[in-house]
Design a binder for these strands. Structure first.
Lengths: 329, 329
DNA sequence: CTGAAAGCGCTAACAC
DNA sequence: GTGTTAGCGCTTTCAG
């Protein structure tokens, strides 16, 4: 089947291609009956405008790049849903790029994105170096960063203030004299973890606590679990904070194994939880991070950038809610 | 900054655009020194070939559509990773489309895909009607379906034989005289569920069991849980099978609540589990479905379709392994 | 080995 | 209102 083009439609409807173009772009100047004729021709031939050609002619692809880290794909599902829902409304297509830490060459990725001539890019919480940001900017590529506070010309961000969350959480304990607080560093989401550490450290400083706030554990559940099993033989903390519920579960299970009572002896909190948190006992106290909204708002901001609409706030902070559950007193 | 084009590079390197084109396409006929001159010009100007223009000129976008249902996004993470990894190797970009049951207009979606002129589409387990398949075929769009056995011209599939899995599972119980087996129908993945029902029914038929093999439960965890809570007041089964571990957990938790011993009184099995299954007690017996491979193989087959390479088998069945854990005897 | 020129399919002035 | 035409940026014969 020959790919049918706007030209075929023009001939079929006995008009010029300009008119066909007008019809498919809903230009209002076309007379009603010729419009109808064209539409019938389109229908008859099964014509679908070639978005690639449109993209070339307009220097606008109505397509965006989305960058997500491979490991976080299962966590970012909600954000992606939020983003996709809004993208659909505005008619944007999304090209998905996944990054694998230590493997993906960010330079190549950016090159690929530039080549694809997307109208903009949404990046989920990847630590871009100044250098890479600059490259994108050189190509005038509007950017929305999710998860980090960043802004400049054509670059906005949407995020939850994790530093503050960690600070508030730590403070709530410190003011009660509970100072043995440890953050489990999973080394998977360095940038998020760093924000948390910063908040913890600030609280520690204010209360004159000199302890190291971080415990580094292996990346994978099994090895993390083994590590903690060993660790709990001669350690016990009052409060342990994990980034993900999966890490909190490693702590929880290892603690149980070591006969450490949760929450009586050790309280456990995580930042992001998944739907599984509601299915397990004890449920882990966590922050309600508005994942869906992070994605949806990111996309909304992006459309503003693309339309040169005014962006009242280039750094959009979304709120979290702390949810005390059974893993804390 | 003016978008720089192949023409600018040609001028800078003092050659024609044809030569520049040859260089960026690694044509071997270019003399070494002119090639070098061109490459330097490209570097100096920071030129990146416009993939949209290439797409138009070649009638080939090196881009594929990926269709995933919104709810399954968190489950399909591994498949997507598999697909993306292979796509990266072959240099394909992936446009992500998500579908929301009852909301997404599949016709529109297909229209959108056709317009975007992708070279092919990978569809994760969505029940396409014959009609829709036909539309895609009319546009010669190579298709790989993940999760269903389908094939025809330019359409391949990669899947796990769930019907057989359910059949074998049921049979293993039936031959021991255990006949009170129920499948929890979550109504989220109809096509998968139907495959399971088919397998169960076949086993039931062979053993002359006349019971209805299915219990329908609400979609969401909370409501499903409540429903089961009520249900277990006057029901108890020997074996209960769920599609996802999340549904198995609803069963598990509700059963506990009703003082039904797991696995002594009721055994629980799920088909797909997530990484959370290894973190909970009791761990749920499940099938190891090779999610990553489903995605990776799908992509591999797609590249064959696109290159008109011979596809030895258009219906590729991947193996599962049954994993007995603590929720079964 | 390199250049000239004709498309790829569509949009957007500019005429009529 | 509708048609004509010059691009959008690149690939690919076809000459030379």
């Amino acid at each position: 089947m020959k790919r049918i083009t706007i030209y075929d439609v023009a001939k079929e409807a006995d008009v010029s291609l300009a008119t066909v173009s007008r019809v498919i772009n809903h230009s209002s100047v076309v007379r009603e009956d010729t419009k109808k004729r064209v539409e019938e021709a389109i229908e008859r031939l099964g014509f679908k405008p070639n978005a690639v050609a449109q993209g070339l002619a307009l220097s606008k692809t109505t397509t965006l790049a989305l960058v997500v880290s491979e490991t976080s794909l299962s966590y970012t599902g909600q954000m992606i849903n939020g983003l996709m829902d809004v993208a659909k409304i505005y008619g944007y297509n999304i090209i998905l790029h996944t990054t694998t830490e230590g493997i993906t060459d960010l330079g190549e990725l950016i090159e690929n994105i530039i080549k694809s001539r997307v109208d903009g890019a949404v990046i989920f919480n990847d630590k871009l170096t100044e250098n890479e940001l600059q490259t994108m900017q050189n190509y005038q590529l509007p950017l929305v960063i999710v998860g980090n506070r960043i802004s400049r010309d054509k670059v906005c961000s949407v995020f939850v203030n994790l530093t503050r969350a960690a600070y508030e959480l730590a403070t709530s304990y410190l003011k009660r004299g509970i100072t043995d607080i440890k953050l489990i560093e999973d080394r998977k989401n360095q940038s998020q973890t760093n924000q948390l550490i910063k908040g913890l450290q600030k609280a520690f400083d204010e209360y004159g606590v000199k302890e190291e706030p971080v415990i580094r554990i292996p990346r994978e559940y099994r090895t993390a679990y083994s590590f903690l099993n060993e660790y709990f033989k001669d350690h016990k903390h009052q409060v342990m904070i994990a980034n993900r519920d999966s890490h909190a579960l490693a702590v929880l299970n290892a603690a149980k194994e070591a006969n450490i009572e949760i929450p009586d002896e050790t309280e456990i909190v995580c930042i992001y939880d998944s739907k599984y948190n509601s299915m397990i006992r004890p449920q882990i106290s966590s922050f309600n991070i508005p994942s869906y909204d992070l994605g949806a708002v990111a996309m909304r901001v992006m459309t503003k950038l693309l339309n040169d609409d005014p962006v009242p706030d280039k750094e959009i902070e979304l709120n979290y809610v702390y949810n005390a559950r059974q893993s804390t007193k």
